[in-house]
Design a protein around this nucleic acid. Sequence first.
DNA 1: TGGGGTTAT
DNA 2: ATAACCC
Length: 470
Amino acid sequence: MEPFPPPTEEDEEDWLRPQPGGGAVPPAPSGHSKSVSARSTACRVIVHVDLDCFYAQVEMIRNPELRDKPLGVQQKYIVVTCNYEARKLGVKKLMSVKDAKEKCPQLILVNGEDLTPYREMSYKVTELLGEFCPLVERLGFDENFVDITEIVEKRLNQLQQSGCSRVCVSGHVYNHQAINLLDTTHVRLVIGSQIAEEFREAIYARLGLTGCAGVASNKLLSKLVSGTFKPNQQTVLLPESCQDLIRSLDHIQKVPGIGYKTTKRLETLGVRNVCDLQACPSAVLEKELGVSITQRIQKLSYGEDDSPVTPSGPPQSFSDEDSFKKCSSEVEVKEKIEELLPNLLDRIYKDGRQPHTVRLTIRQFSSTDKWFNRESRQCPIPPHLIQKFGKESSSVLSPMVDILMKLFRKMIDVHQPFHLTLVSVCFSNLKDLPSSKKGSIGFYLKQEVEGVSQGEGSASWNQNCNRTGT
DNA sequence: TGGGGTTAT
DNA sequence: ATAACCC
């Protein structure tokens, strides 16, 4: 057996050969980080990391006694998620508490309406991934995409230089497809699987969380493949199995990016599964959905997705909401707002940025179509109030309640009867503190440590700059 | 169904 | 401001 693959037509497949110049270890090529763009055939390598039943895991860490018992996390009368002990006994995500208790009388429930512990742990995961690589995009609290193309290229170069001809896959290969080490795309994805394993090991070692990972050449496929082996496992997709994966989806709504509304409209056209969507003439789709959506979803139906992994950075908004059976007077609304605000103001204070917009959202009762009748009103926050966000005062509280009540009266005629089932407050349009007067002493200390190259708060959000304990 | 988030129009 | 999408 030859130690190195034979030459082939494509020079991309020469990667395993020793570099000209023999066994001496050459210095890293000066442009090594640019080698990706230099090679047109190099594929992106994307990892999708998906934590197992995230809220339940966080609760089990908070209270280890729950570890080996069936556990559900409850919000209002819904079990929003549960651990695998509970799943074995028939409990499903988003099951009503009533059904869950019927299925599983021993089920232990913890209230998960306050998302603070989950949010905190969620950002720890994103920050941990950010230590490996700057391109980390959050999706909800429990999923992250990481574009590891550059890391893969570096390791590929290292392998070339060491003359190593073998790489081993970590975890599953979708469809049990055979790996061809002469195919540089295969090799890149295999290296990606090793990095994904390192991600999961780090998340477990440092945070005690388990999860799945999917490795593929784009976000869509990495997400689809990450769910193929389910708790605490990982899977890599090789390009030849792409069609099998995407066609294994029985309904188009399983395609991320095709949601409820689009699915309904596609059903109108008789398009029910991925194959239908692939086969449907573009002109037919365009008439129903427009050209933009058509082009995007038809590419998705082939497993194509060129959307970049966009670093999420710090949150774009902070919101807090509460749902309830009934709220029908102005004073009740005010009470709800006063309940929501302190928590929100505290989160904003800890973030350190100042919001410039505030929004009030309500949901009015309606027996049919229970959850899409939300309305909102937003307005700029008056400059004198914005200033006060920088300091720890609660002097913002009552003026802010007044603003929110004005927004409320823009939506609801308080002289007519009304029936709300949800109130939500959202602060957005967050801006960094003006550089002229960045108050706290902690800020200056951190500035010195971070040096000059960080800019202001955009790249340094994950490096310790939250003012939790000043 | 909850209690969050994002981007596009 | 809403509508769509994601979890």
